[in-house]
Design a protein around this nucleic acid. Structure first.
Lengths: 218, 218
DNA sequence: ATAAAAAGTTAGGTATATCTAACTTGTAAA
DNA sequence: TTTACAAGTTAGATATACCTAACTTTTTAT
């Protein structure tokens, strides 16, 4: 049985090594800063996770998840996304509120609970952020997605997910009345800083490149 | 913010001092044995809870909840019973399975979650064990209930709750196909050991006094 | 009334997860 | 290619929650 904290380290490693970029390895400082702890703290935990064969790691080297470590991490991701779906669809939580509660719920230990929750929700494939939910076998649909930044001028696309889960970002998105399946038309792009003029719900607005980088579309 | 463990101590105190018997105080050994820890461990925690003004307690004396301690404990009890109701009614958990998962879920910190869950369940007044659920104001319906042991011979009553939440007891209850609202007719009582002959679903069976003491009826 | 038993506390130790400060290793730039 | 900085580790400390063993206080029974 993994502790709450061990689970968070595995989830962070999955996020850094696979979700963010497909580089498949992470550094100690990078991991520590992602989790909001000091590098010394992360080093201690890395020794423990290596001992339990959940990660592949040598002193002063890069970190990657082992087979079993990845399995555990995917299971936690599955629980996180199922709970987010529950909170949004059944309890009417808004899009930007689900994340922090799901951070707690994902650590509840009960295989039966996960399976029954999945069934109750109708075996959803995507969570309220549009991210794929790993199925009971731990299979995670690779989502070959483009960001809003990559869309050609004059084209209309449809938002399917966000890459950033910070409260600040999600609030901004809500404020713009932007949600899953919202249609976005790209009017123009400023070559100087990559900012974009777009149309959402008949309103023309300008967003920064940083913002557009975090909106996933189809 | 209270820790997981502090919450469990408060909940245990509420259970011992109010739920089990209305004696309103508990001893260190009694509390420790209820929680499955050593008395020395309980003493440490009692000092901490006293420091936080959650309990009324003097060295070598009896323990009781303070006003704010009781409030916190009732809030945890409310969460526990709402989650049990959710697990039983929405996820089809059987009666004897809900308790241990609810033990984990009751510690999730989110006022919004509790309120929305309550609403989603239709503001239930009783949990799957028939125990009253405290409302949002922390009001707990006093349930003036009798146990099966107190029922006169020849009388038919209706089961509304159980007093014992152990897995062994709940499994036995399930096995007998006894549930909330099951009608029970008392045929006879053995003066020697208090064992009772009863009729459930047209089957005549004999149960011990210990068993009958833990079946609450109306 | 006192001695034995029960109840409760203290002291000192362990494991987890965190920190700071000092040290070591790796890498990139002059 | 050497040196300086970034990255990473170690050592020692703290807080929580638990333990055992020894001690103290309270209660009970003779």
């Amino acid at each position: 049985m993994l502790s709450f904290t061990e689970e968070n380290y595995l989830k962070a490693l999955l996020h850094i090594t696979i979700e963010v970029e497909h580089k498949n390895e992470a550094g100690t400082n990078e991991l520590a800063s992602y989790l909001g702890v000091k590098p010394a703290t992360a080093t201690d935990m890395l020794k423990k996770l290596k001992e339990k064969k959940l990660i592949v790691y040598e002193k002063y080297g890069k970190i990657s998840l082992s087979g079993s470590g990845r399995e555990k991490a995917v299971e936690i991701l599955r629980k996180h996304r199922l709970w987010e779906t529950f909170l949004h669809e059944k309890l009417d939580f808004s899009w930007d509120e689900v994340h922090e509660v799901a951070e707690q719920l994902e650590h509840i230990q009960s295989q039966k609970l996960v399976d029954k929750l999945d069934k109750f929700l109708g075996f959803p494939e995507y969570d309220p952020h549009g991210d794929a939910i790993p199925n009971a076998k731990g299979e995670l649909k690779p989502s070959f997605r483009k960001t809003l930044s990559e869309v050609k001028e004059g084209t209309t696309c449809r938002m399917v997910a966000v890459k950033d889960n910070t409260v600040a970002f999600l609030k901004y998105v809500s404020q713009l009345e932007l949600g899953i399946n919202t249609h976005i038309k790209v009017i123009g792009r400023q070559p100087y800083d990559g900012s974009m003029e777009i149309v959402i719900n008949s309103n023309t607005i300008v967003v920064s490149q940083k913002f557009a980088d975090n909106i996933l579309i189809i």
